[in-house]
Amino acid sequence: MRYVPLFLITLTLTFVADISTAGESVIGSVKTVKGDASIVRDGKTIPANAGEKIYAHDKFLTGNASSLGVTFRDNTLVSLGSGSEFVVNEFLFNPAESEFSFISKMFKGTISYISGKIGKLSPESVKFQTPVATIGIRGTRFLAKVEG
């Protein structure tokens, strides 16, 4: 009996691994960088240079006196101030099939968030989270600060 759950766990893990590598598509790009900014992707940390393409699950980090601005494929504009940590957990922009999702989380720091087409076409698909709250939007443009 004990082997059954283990077998299922193995199956599940394999399945998840397949999803995370299959069909990874570009969701936007880095446009502005000041100071020390980086992206954590698949466990590796790379510099966040202007012109760097970005993908779902990327985590963005900024150091002291640093900032970072990115555009997303649905025209959402996100920019971070110093000492920030922000991750895009889910991004799906497929208007032809009416498939939308933009789920992101801010762990610390400051952010300016200007929502794009997903926010217009399907506001309920946009979720912005912090460790203590979840934001739903209609429109829109907002600022958030999370104390680390």
Partner: peptide
């Protein structure tokens, strides 16, 4: 509080 983040905002497409 937010000037730094706002100044980093990319131009819209």
């Amino acid at each position: 509080t937010f000037g730094e983040a706002m100044a980093a905002q990319p131009e819209p497409g």
